[in-house]
Design a protein around this nucleic acid. Structure first.
Lengths: 339, 339
DNA sequence: TACTATTAGTAAAGCGGTTAAATAATGTAA
DNA sequence: TTACATTATTTAACCGCTTTACTAATAGTA
């Protein structure tokens, strides 16, 4: 059933049908009623494809993010989709790992004429090519591109600072790290440790890439196993994210040791399961709700104001969530008992 | 840049451009080359929307599944998308929880003219309405619909049987369950236990819905907490899925007890993190790869053969993955030590 | 009464492709 | 040289909807 058929059976023009369905003031209430009633009984389904072609707008935002099975991104994508739906848009999510290159995913979205793209972990060439295409784009996380681009990110440096400060307050003196050392979260962590003249031996730092980089859990597990082989071990380890922390905890447990008694662990992201782990994870909460809200706000503004919208760089504050794995509560309890 | 513009600058007809780009034998190699070369330098981007409208085919399969953040579905959706991509289709995933009702998600997909739908957890009205729309559809899991419909599912009953058999072999005599008792996985578990004249008190069965049903982890946690309050506790508990098991393990740990020493736990799904838990989870592996492969096979066959394709009901065999949480290895070690 | 506004509806072009049917150009056989 | 295939290209309709410009009918005003 198409507008044409409706028009024919109702003896009106196809334009009338179209206008009536979009509640145009040009059509009288009587004919509107007639058409809408009819449409209801025959269960007319507007062809969105045709509409898209005619209007040049798809009400679709492409989302290119890594692994849906990485809880952090899964949660973030869900929040983005929720926010989009509130604004009558719909998110078209392409998990990056099913494509050989980011460009493949980008091409799919551009060919399908999405109204905008929310993405992350693009390299500079990809970003530039997208800008050339004149499609609105907002990135999660600024990767030091030498160009002006809209993005939303969390203050990772601050996150690292919070972790270090808290661990230092708990009395630890020897610190380790499992993750990428080129990141701000590491810089924040390191700076605070050094400022306090505390120790972080090179062997206590396990870079993803030295171990198994593709899977966070696996690399956390392997990284921690290597750390535990050392004679002189760190007392606390900052894991790159919660998945890494989970892998690391598993390694500690397998070695017959305990978190946090033998070694403290802190993660990053605060994924949903963090609090359900046997040893609930102390971590940095990066509000996925807020990130998603901002990403959607910025992209829609760009879509509506096209070239007029100013570049936005939004930084979201992280927050430390203290649970069990850092040993804070344990230490406090011990102190209480001693008194 | 459109085909029209290409045609104009190259002094050929727009039909020639279209045919050349689709490698039609009607066009000479010389003109094909000319057009393709030109297209390459001007970075022509075919408008998929227009193509869809003209051909009536979108090369898109709608996927309606629950929470991307439920690892099982996340992993399954990823596998589906991978399989689709191999066949030049692209999966359009709508997480069901962002819609008020399934029908909203269905409408979005139908209006966008997807070529087929892969879904799960639809009720009978929704399934019938979809069949009326004549759109190819394949379900993950048959929910006892009184109609003929294509589906892929795992042999849940068998899964429950495997769990019970293994726990019984390990010497347990008292069994609990946290989950939906209307399911086959429960039936299999229960049948084997009863056949062996073993005990499963009513209090050891915590139904999702009695506790907190929307979130698996939360319900596992709450369910196990209630079980642990009992004087007479079960020795082994079968959790509805791995997320439920994770919540349950957390409750055991909080109570100062240990898995599997004090209580054994078995999950279902074998999500990726199951083996990284501090106490690695014994669970039933439901090969997501195979489920996805079959789902895609069936839907594409339906799309190609339209009404001619026979109804397919595919059952996939589950497999027990024995890790630590069931206590099997522990018991065997103890036995060895005693000898 | 004649003229202008206002209201209701329609015709037709356009969105960017595909494709069947028609046409033009070339080659081949009688 | 003519007739007929064969090959290459084009014309034009179509997919289903939107939207501008136009027409027709009615109401309002001087």
């Amino acid at each position: 059933m198409t507008q044409k058929e409706i028009a024919e059976t109702l003896n009106v023009s196809i334009a009338t049908v179209s206008l009536a369905l979009s509640d145009s003031p040009k059509i009288s209430d009587i004919t509107k009623e007639k058409i809408k009633d009819f449409v209801r009984v025959v269960k007319y389904r507007p062809n969105v494809i045709a509409k898209n072609l005619a209007t040049g707008k798809t009400w679709t935002i492409g989302i290119i993010f890594p692994s849906i099975t990485h809880s952090f991104y899964g949660e973030l994508v869900r929040e983005i989709q929720l926010n989009l739906k509130d604004k009558n848009y719909i998110g078209f999510y392409l998990p990056i790992e099913i494509f050989e290159k980011n460009q493949d995913a980008i091409d799919i979205l551009l060919n399908r004429k999405v109204d905008g793209i929310i993405a992350t972990q693009f390299n500079i060439e990809e970003v530039i090519r997208l800008q050339d295409e004149k499609i609105p784009i907002v990135l999660y996380k600024f990767m030091g591109y030498p160009i002006d681009i809209d993005y939303v990110e969390i203050d990772e440096y601050k996150g690292g600072v919070l972790v270090a400060q808290h661990l230092i307050k708990s009395g630890y003196k020897k610190f380790g790290f499992i993750g990428y050392i080129g990141t701000k979260r590491y810089a924040g962590y390191r700076d605070i440790i050094y400022q306090n003249n505390l120790i972080m031996n090179n062997e206590w730092i396990k870079q993803l890439g030295d171990v198994i980089p593709t899977d966070s859990r696996e690399s956390g597990y392997e990284g921690m196993k290597k750390i535990l082989l050392l004679k002189d071990k760190p007392e606390a380890v900052f894991a790159f994210n919660d998945m890494t922390a989970i892998g690391a905890m598993r390694a500690v447990y397998e070695a017959g040791l305990k978190v946090p008694e033998d070694i403290a662990i802190v993660g990053f992201d605060d994924i949903e399961e963090a609090k359900y782990l046997n040893i609930a994870l102390t971590t940095v909460n990066t509000s996925k709700k807020e990130i998603a809200k901002k990403l959607v706000e910025v992209i829609l503004e760009k879509i509506e104001n096209k070239d007029k919208a100013p570049i936005q760089k939004i930084i979201i504050e992280p927050e430390l969530v203290v649970r069990e794995s850092c040993g804070f509560y344990l230490k406090n309890k011990l102190k209480d008992m001693r008194m």
